[in-house]
Simulated scan of single mutants.
Amino acid sequence: MDITRRRLLIAGGTAVGLSIAATAGRDSASRLWWRVPGNEKPRKEGDVDHTSAEWVAASTANWRRADRPADYRVDRIVIHVVQGSYPTALKVFQDPAHGAAAHYVVRKDGHVAQMIRELDVAFHAGNQEWNERSVGIEHEGFVDRPADFTPQMYRASARLAADICHRYDFPADREHIVPHAKVPGTDHTDPGPHWDWGRYLGMVEEELRRARRRRTAG
C-alpha cells in the first residue's frame, strides 16, 4: 500500500472526526425528542438496513447516535474511495482514534459491509450538516487506479444506492448522489476522475426500475 496515502487517510479522517465530534453536543432540544423513553425506534445489535450487507460495527467514537429520518432528513448519498484496501477501511473505521467512518464499505468483488446504522450520523463527509443528511458509501481502491472500480463493485454499490434512494424517497441524480470532493468545505478528491458517473447512475436507475417491477408484481 502507498504509505503516504495511508497516512493521509488516517490523519485527514482524524482531524475531520474530531472537529465534528466537538460540535455533536450542540443539537437543539427539538432534535433530541427521541431520547425520551418510548420515542426511539427499536434497535437490535447486528441489524442491517441493506439486506445483503454484512454487519461489521465501527467504533462508537466514529459516529453519533440519532434517529434519522425523524430528527434529520436523509436526502443525500456521498460516494467515497478508501485510498486503500477493504480490510484497511474496516480497520480504521473500527479504530476509535480515527475519528471518522462511513455507513457502508463496498469491496471489489461486490461484498458490502454495513458499519453504522442509517439511523445514526456517521462522521464521513467532513461537514456536519452533510453528515446529518447523508449516507456514506466507501469503496475499496485508489482514485488513480481505474481497474479498482470493478463491475461487481459498481453493481453492488448501485443496488445499495437504489435501496437508499427508495427508502428515503429522493432521486438518483448528481444533486443527490455526490462525490466526497463536492461536499462543501472538504479537501478530499474522491472518488476521482476514473469513477464512471454515467455508468453508475444508470445502474442505480436500473436497480430502481427492477425494484418497482418487483413491487408491482408482488
Rank of each mutant, 00 (worst) to 15 (best):
M1R: 06
I3E: 14
I10K: 09
A11E: 13
G12N: 08
G13R: 04
V16E: 02
G17K: 05
S19R: 07
S19L: 06
I20H: 06
I20Q: 09
A24N: 09
G25Y: 07
R26H: 12
R26S: 14
D27N: 13
D27Q: 14
S28A: 10
S28P: 02
A29N: 00
W34H: 14
R35T: 15
R35N: 14
P37K: 00
G38S: 08
G38T: 05
G38N: 06
E40D: 14
E40G: 09
E40A: 15
R43I: 13
K44Y: 10
S52H: 12
W55Q: 01
A58C: 15
T60L: 09
A61Y: 13
W63Y: 15
W63C: 14
A70Y: 14
D71E: 10
D71Q: 08
Y72K: 07
R73I: 10
R76G: 01
R76S: 07
V78R: 01
I79F: 05
H80L: 07
H80C: 05
H80G: 01
H80E: 05
V81P: 03
V81H: 05
S85P: 02
A89D: 11
L90R: 14
F93C: 14
Q94I: 02
G99W: 09
G99C: 11
G99N: 07
H103C: 04
H103Y: 04
Y104E: 06
R107G: 00
G110Y: 03
G110F: 04
V112Y: 07
A113Q: 04
A113L: 05
I116M: 08
R117P: 02
R117L: 12
E118T: 08
L119E: 11
D120L: 10
V121N: 03
A122Q: 04
A122F: 02
N127L: 02
E129H: 06
W130C: 01
W130Y: 13
N131W: 03
E132C: 06
R133A: 12
S134R: 01
S134L: 02
V135N: 02
F142M: 12
V143I: 15
D144M: 10
R145K: 12
P146C: 05
A147D: 15
D148P: 03
T150R: 10
M153V: 10
R155I: 04
A156H: 13
L160A: 03
D163P: 00
Y168R: 15
Y168W: 15
D169E: 13
D169F: 03
F170V: 11
P171L: 05
P171H: 03
R174I: 05
I177P: 09
V178Q: 13
V178R: 13
P179Q: 08
G185N: 09
T186L: 01
D187M: 02
D190H: 02
G192A: 03
P193R: 15
W195C: 04
Y200H: 15
L201E: 11
G202D: 12
M203I: 08
E205W: 07
E206G: 13
E207R: 12
L208N: 09
A211N: 03
R213A: 15
R215K: 09
T216F: 12
